[in-house]
């Protein structure tokens, strides 16, 4: 009879993965915010966080001011109200505790990177696929995008941790039907939505998946969809209320036009977009990894691996 693998052994393997990633990232923590996207976003959000600490939460209306360098509190036109404002606030809180430095900013991102790697393992473990979880965690720590942009100060990385948490809570709800799991879904949606946009892409995915599971219980599916829409509306409304507070209705509609592409500065085509996306995927994920992931999506899946595949 096969011996069950020790949980301690799995944790030890996970610690090796986390340690290796940390060791390769540590030398970069003190680098100035200078070059490329990493430097740009580092300086961009660090400036905003520094302004929040300098002028206070009320004077900056808790909003991002990454392009502002004045001596007096910022005005409406000095705000960058195009992205959720949770991350600049989180960075400001980090700076308030650890001081304004490149190390503090990147340490925050590194912490969330380690959280994301751990979340993949926990996801596998919670869904009865610890080996798959370990493989996903090791893959996350090995991908070029993690090494290149993992320590970058940006809301995407913390948000992803809560997206994985969202799926964990969802699968917990599917398994148990407990109301507490629904609170977990709502909380993860709220936090992830205040940090970055990407969580909204996962709302329709959850709706479709729930429809598949509850295809005989249409009323239950409708109820769940309404709950998801309401939970997703909260961070969205909080985001929309902020530019309105900063500069009124005209300011809000201007920002919406800008972010939805209704007021584009240049034109682009779908084929061009697909080509660039594929080029980026090859660069940051490597073609062999993408191919293996596609195989993981289409081959018949074992019972243990099914939740991993569903979430993917």
């Amino acid at each position: 009879m096969r011996q069950p693998r020790s949980r301690h052994f799995e944790v030890a393997l996970l610690l090796v993965v986390l340690g290796a990633f940390t060791l390769t990232t540590l030398p970069r923590l003190d680098e100035p915010f200078l070059v490329g996207h990493e430097g740009f976003n580092g300086a961009f959000f660090a400036t905003s966080a520094r302004n929040t600490l300098r002028f206070g939460l009320l004077a900056t209306k808790a909003g991002p001011t990454p392009r502002y360098f004045g001596d007096s509190p910022p005005r409406a036109e000095d705000f960058y109200a195009s992205t959720p404002y949770g991350y600049p606030l989180l960075l400001a809180a980090t700076y308030a505790v650890f001081g304004v430095s490149e190390r503090a900013g990147r340490s925050l991102s590194l912490t969330f990177c380690l959280g994301l790697i751990t979340a993949f393992y926990l996801f596998g473990r919670a869904t009865g696929a610890p080996l798959g979880g370990l493989a996903a965690a090791a893959a996350a720590a090995s991908l070029p995008i993690m090494h290149e942009f993992g320590p970058m100060t940006l809301g995407q990385i913390p948000s992803l941790v809560f997206v994985v948490g969202l799926y964990l809570a969802y699968f917990s709800y599917l398994g148990s039907g407990a109301g507490s799991a629904l609170w977990g879904v709502a909380l993860c949606l709220l936090v992830a939505g205040l940090l970055d946009w990407q969580v909204y892409c996962h709302v329709p995915v959850l709706m479709l998946d729930f429809a598949w599971h509850e295809r005989k219980e249409r009323r239950r599916w409708v109820g769940f969809c309404l709950f998801l829409l309401l939970a997703a509306a909260l961070p969205l409304l909080l985001f929309l209320a902020h530019p309105y507070w900063l500069g009124g209705f005209h300011y809000l509609t201007g920002k919406l036009r800008q972010r939805t592409g209704l007021a584009p500065a240049v034109q682009y085509t779908s084929s061009g977009f697909a080509f660039v996306l594929w080029r980026y995927l090859c660069l940051m994920y490597k073609p062999a990894t993408v191919l293996a992931a596609v195989v993981g999506l289409v081959v018949p899946t074992s019972r243990e691996g099914a939740p991993l595949r569903q979430a993917a």
Binding site: A136, G296, L308
Partner: peptide, 8 residues
């Protein structure tokens, strides 16, 4: 990508 690799 990572979850699909884990499932595989």
């Amino acid at each position: 990508v990572c979850l699909a690799l884990g499932a595989l």
